[in-house]
């Protein structure tokens, strides 16, 4: 099965195994907390290059601009304008800003950007079914993997259903625009049909899953065969060793202090 359209690729590069990407993501997130600003800038640049190289770059940057950038800007602004622990002020683009707050805001914003970019790069370039297969092959619980995949599918279904229930209940006379107390009361006629409709489905689906042997032990076969290359195995090991070394080093520093 071809996977190149989904995975982190550029022209001439082979698809990267989902677990290597997972290790890379966890490492960058952990390291951006432990390392100094220079290292964080380096990680941010590396992530930016990787994002530009992927085919899903548009989706990554779109989500970043829509969901992350407003938080980053707010974090920076809040610290610049109201940083209670400092009275030092500097001039920036003609505005008088709190110096310590500005530096603190920059560090937090950078950390937030690195974490979010890393997570977006991983989740946007890794299709859930491939990630699921990869973790299953490593011995993860099939039940938890099913929960993850089924929830992903259900989110869109439920949102559509909520819209329908809202219109149906409003047309039956449900007061959805009254005072706060009435609106809290309106919550229940919307929630109950949603939960009840899925409860009976849960019973059927649970039975079907048991019949298909979801919790069965023993060797399994997979629809998609994912193989780790030697380079990926070395990369995984290096990422694990590198991150563990930094964690231990920081722990030692903290203990000596």
């Amino acid at each position: 099965m071809r996977m190149s359209s989904h995975l982190l690729t550029s022209k001439g590069m082979r698809p990267v195994h989902p677990l290597t990407k997972l290790y890379f993501t966890v490492s960058t997130v952990v390291l951006c907390f432990l390392l100094d600003v220079t290292a964080q800038v380096f990680i941010a640049c590396l992530l930016l290059i990787l994002c530009v190289l992927t085919r899903q770059r548009r989706s990554i940057f779109k989500r970043f601009l829509r969901y992350v950038l407003p938080v980053v800007i707010l974090v920076l602004l809040l610290n610049v304008l109201i940083y209670p622990e400092s009275e030092k002020w500097i001039s920036l683009f003609g505005f008088r800003v709190n110096e310590v707050g500005f530096h603190f805001g920059l560090i937090v914003s950078l950390r937030l950007s690195v974490m979010s970019l890393s997570l977006l790069l991983f989740f946007v370039t890794t299709p859930p079914h491939l990630l699921a297969t990869a973790v299953l092959m490593k011995g993860a619980s099939p039940r938890i993997v099913f929960v993850f995949l089924h929830s992903l599918q259900l989110v869109t279904t439920l949102r559509r259903k909520i819209g329908k229930i809202f219109i149906a209940q409003a047309s039956r006379g449900l007061d959805v625009k009254g005072n706060p107390f009435k609106r809290v009361k309106a919550l229940f006629p919307m929630l109950l049909p949603l939960v009840f409709s899925y409860l009976s489905e849960s019973l059927e689906r649970g039975l079907a899953l048991e019949l298909r042997g979801l919790g069965i032990h023993g060797p399994k076969s997979y629809l998609v065969e994912l193989k780790e290359s030697g380079t990926e195995r070395v990369a995984n090991l290096l990422l694990l060793l590198g991150t563990s070394t930094v964690i231990l080093w920081k722990l030692l520093q903290w203990l000596i202090r």
Partner: peptide
């Protein structure tokens, strides 16, 4: 995490995100 619980856990997770 067996039988009827598995699909209901998935529903619970999706409900958190949709409410």
């Amino acid at each position: 995490t067996s039988g009827v619980s598995i699909p209901f856990i998935a529903f619970g997770a999706a409900l958190n995100l949709s409410l």
